[in-house]
Nucleic acid binder design. Structure first.
Lengths: 223, 223
DNA sequence: TTGCAATTCAAACAGTTGTATGAAACTATC
DNA sequence: GATAGTTTCATACAACTGTTTGAATTGCAA
């Protein structure tokens, strides 16, 4: 046991720096300086830099997934096994968007770290990341129960597009603000969530009478 | 003038390696080995590694933007100044998707390089990247002309979501294939383009009678 | 206090990175 | 064919990376 103080100071400093500046250009020396500990402490407590990153990622990954699944479970129980698709999508993208957008002082370091992890591809994380597929499968299952007439292909595409809009908006929030000259307000997080959920819902329910990839026909007309 | 052979060999090798492995872990020595030239050649011909990356990015950026604008211009001229929104969106996301997806042997190194550039954030590129906003503004203008009843905010959000779906699908194509157990066919590029265009069109035209952010009401009902 | 393990620390290590150097090899002009 | 300018090359350099080492310090039990 012992103090544990150094250990958690390193974790906190590392998470903060990675969230802000990305994995690429944060060195061990940056981390220990920020944490106010000795350089050798990282290797002593974690073994290596990669293991530090991995531990950070696993911890946060578990926490984020639990949060999302909590919302999902609650929604499905309330609906007797079937939740409205909008609520499922909200459980999927809401926690991340809320953690990464909004006024600077209320952004979660943890959420921003996770976005970094999903963007930059660093070896120790890549190795673990496959497990997240199981997590997404649970959401795919809930979406299937919510939209039983929908083909699997459409479910997966809808899931993909929902994540796409959420992650891309976070990643490019600065550019979107500049492009729109401030008209798109990324501090109004609930509006952003509502927009993403709305579009994803449309993607998943358009042409709902057919069962086989109806989105294609609609777009083909435009060619 | 002189031979120029070494110069272009370096450019080609660098683009290939960056497209495949990202900027993070491609060293000058990797590049010169792939190009079959001496280590000092990069600094001799380009001055520094950063200037090599910058030249590569500027060249490709101009080419990609020209291709997209060509499609856009053609569509607007054919429609007498107003192009259908689907065609505009297709001009926006089509070239990139076609260059990055599809069977391995027909993927464009250039397009994959550009996606890398838009994903990983490396200093020399970040400095140049702001210019791309002007390019996107041209598309925003065309979309405004196509949907004159739409508010600027909705236009920008639609543009953002269209790019989001295209880029995210490219970035996470492997995961989507695995998640869907191959049901989502990412080799059928035209299907992917059609899906993205279709959803983006819905995002931009839903509730088309109103002028003020109608997407919000739809999602709010679901809360 | 003594003794022992856990922790911290300054320093050095080995490896890799981008860059610079000066001699050698070319190429074209006179 | 000698000369001047360009391009290539092997090599060295300085800076930085993650990691290791072994001595100092700390904390705690006997």
């Amino acid at each position: 046991m012992a103090s544990d103080h150094t250990r958690s100071a390193i974790l906190a400093a590392a998470e903060r720096l990675y969230a802000d500046r990305g994995f690429g250009d944060v060195t061990l020396r940056d981390i220990v300086a920020e944490a106010g500990v000795n350089l050798a402490a990282v290797n002593y407590h974690f073994g290596s830099k990669d293991e530090l990153i991995a531990e950070l990622f696993v911890t946060r990954s578990i926490a984020t997934n639990r949060e999302r699944l909590r919302e999902l479970k609650a929604a499905e129980e309330q609906g007797g096994g079937r939740a409205p698709i909008e609520v499922i999508l909200r459980a999927l993208v809401g926690p991340t968007l809320r953690g990464c957008l909004g006024p600077e002082n209320q952004r979660s370091t943890a959420a921003r770290f996770m976005i970094r992890a999903s963007i930059e591809s660093v070896p120790p994380i890549r190795r673990i990341k496959n497990r997240e597929i199981d997590h997404l499968r649970k959401f795919a299952g809930a979406m299937r129960r919510s939209l039983p007439d929908r083909s699997d292909v459409d479910i997966y595409w809808g899931l993909n597009f929902a994540l796409a809009m959420a992650h891309h908006t976070i990643r490019e929030s600065e550019r979107l603000t500049k492009l729109s000259e401030g008209k798109c307000d990324l501090d109004d997080v609930e509006d952003v969530v509502a927009r993403v959920v709305s579009v994803a819902t449309m993607a998943l329910t358009a042409g709902r009478t057919e069962t086989k990839a109806p989105a294609r026909a609609l777009a083909r007309d435009a060619r």
